[in-house]
Amino acid sequence: QEVVNPEDYIKHPLQNRWALWFFKNDKSKTWQANLRLIAKFDTVEDFWALYNHIQLSSNLISGCDYSLFKDGIEPMWEDERNKRGGRWLITLSKQQRRADLDRFWLETLLCLVGEAFDDHSDEVCGAVVNIRTKGDKIAIWTADYANKESVTHIGRVYKERLGVPAKVIIGYQSHADTATKSGSTTKNKFVV
């Protein structure tokens, strides 16, 4: 009788079930109506099946977003799990769309589904990529801006995973500050 290795036929379960959302900017519709759930997955294999099936971020038209959030958390500030939180924000230059955008977004996804932030991964809510003419943005959203230890751990690991040079500073901003800002920039609660 042949002994079968479970590794060969059981999909690799993720710690969390994740939901991928797509936003397409149609000004004739409300913000919420422009937001669509694409699919949910909870295994390594199903993550790749989805990732390989959809367009790269760099192929999306301006105004579109992808969001990957833990199942049960909606990709908006108002969600109960997001409203006290904030984001580590990566702002990209126009040139970086070709050079870095798809690589950074995939690395972000791998950090999330692989639970790269150790015990602090529980503080992660999701991540968003915004495709914009003036410059694309990628962010990891966490649950509580006041949880300094988790927020800074996540920021340090994330910066290293993206290969951002030490001299380049990335900032963490609370959603409350982003929502109430008056100018075009939001003050950073933390930097790494």
Binding site: K11, L14, V44, E45, W48, E107, V113, E115, D118
Partner: peptide, 20 residues
């Protein structure tokens, strides 16, 4: 225990034949 996967492990599955 948390199910953690490092990047190389995850990348190794990108082009695996689909599970049946």
């Amino acid at each position: 225990k948390k199910k953690q996967y490092n990047r190389d492990f995850l990348l190794g599955f990108q082009f695996m034949p689909a599970c049946v």
